[in-house]
């Protein structure tokens, strides 16, 4: 289980990264924390010509609040976000979610942006971004259209598939800051602690509307807005069926649908302890 040969580049600036991506495109892979990519390379599920290690780009590692958004750079590790003292205040959903993301050891190197770029349908961070209505910043080498901001709803397009073009780098992810009159809830069932979710549900409970998101069921995180005056069980049933759940070795489709309904009911009706 060893990677195939590749060229390795460790650029020191964003511009260098973007140039390499422009030159190499889909034959390149961006290496940040490596917690997904390296496993894929070791198993030779990908044999890229070039691996671009962005670890040396100094200005890509940050946690900042800008314009009511929590902005996280491409080199920021999951452990750094979890340890950020203001996390619970500004992003209570992420404070609940982060301990579910992998393990202590993988969070130490895995990046927030890397998990979102990988777009595993069972991963917690893409679900959080989708349910909070966040966005990602994609940059490419272009004199005019070098940067675009893509909402989560457009970014996640399917199994491991996103709106990112091969010459683009996801430089930043932005989560809307918590609002005082909103409640943020999360629940997950996995085979073991730290495993990918069989079903993960995240909810933003607003005064008039609930935003409910499901991970681990469809081929991407899926979000549904539920006005608070609707009958939750009817809404949850529609949501459960709409996800197109499938059976695999670890859980049946019916199980996944039922958990969306029943855990969803709990999540919407009981305040998080």
């Amino acid at each position: 289980m060893k990677p195939a040969a590749f060229d390795y580049a460790r650029p020191e600036s964003r511009g260098e990264v973007l140039k390499l991506l422009a030159d190499t495109g889909s034959d390149a892979r961006v290496l940040a924390g490596g917690q997904s990519l390296m496993a894929v390379l070791n198993m030779r599920l990908a044999e890229p010509a070039l691996v671009i290690d962005i670890g040396g780009v100094a200005d890509l590692g940050y946690i900042e609040i800008r314009d009511d958004r929590l902005c996280i750079g491409a080199n920021t590790r999951q452990a750094e976000l979890l340890a950020w003292p203001e996390l619970a205040e500004h992003a209570p959903l992420l404070a609940r979610v982060m301990p579910w993301v992998g393990h202590f050891q993988t969070r130490n190197r895995g990046t927030v942006c890397g998990s979102i770029t990988h777009a595993d349908p069972s991963a917690e961070l893409p679900l959080s971004l989708a349910v909070l209505g966040g966005e990602v910043v994609l940059e490419r080498r272009h004199w005019r259209r070098g940067r675009r901001v893509v909402p989560a709803a457009e970014f996640f397009q399917g199994l491991l598939t996103t709106a990112r073009e091969p010459d683009e780098l996801l430089t930043e992810v932005r989560f809307p800051l918590a609002r005082a009159d909103h409640d943020y809830r999360f629940t997950e069932v996995a085979m073991r602690h730290g495993d990918f979710a069989l079903v993960a549900l995240a909810a933003v409970i607003g005064p008039d509307e609930i935003v409910l998101g499901a991970g681990g069921v469809a081929d991407r995180p899926v979000v549904r807005r539920i006005p608070r005056d609707r009958d939750f069980d009817t809404e949850l049933n529609i949501f459960a069926w709409s996800l197109g759940a499938e059976s695999d070795a670890h859980a049946s489709a019916a199980y996944r649908r039922q958990l969306v309904r029943e855990l969803g009911h709990k999540l919407l009706t009981q305040a998080t302890p």
Binding site: V189, M191, L198, W241, S242, G244, A245, S247, H250, A253
Partner: peptide, 30 residues
């Protein structure tokens, strides 16, 4: 005794799919 298998033994009394949302046919066998 995975959670899914145990839950199936407890019983899953599924409400019908809303009209127009047919469940995706399960793949043949496992």
């Amino acid at each position: 005794l995975t959670p899914s298998r145990v839950r199936a033994m407890i019983g899953i009394d599924e409400p019908d799919a809303p009209e127009g949302l047919e469940p995706i046919k399960p793949a043949a066998g496992s």
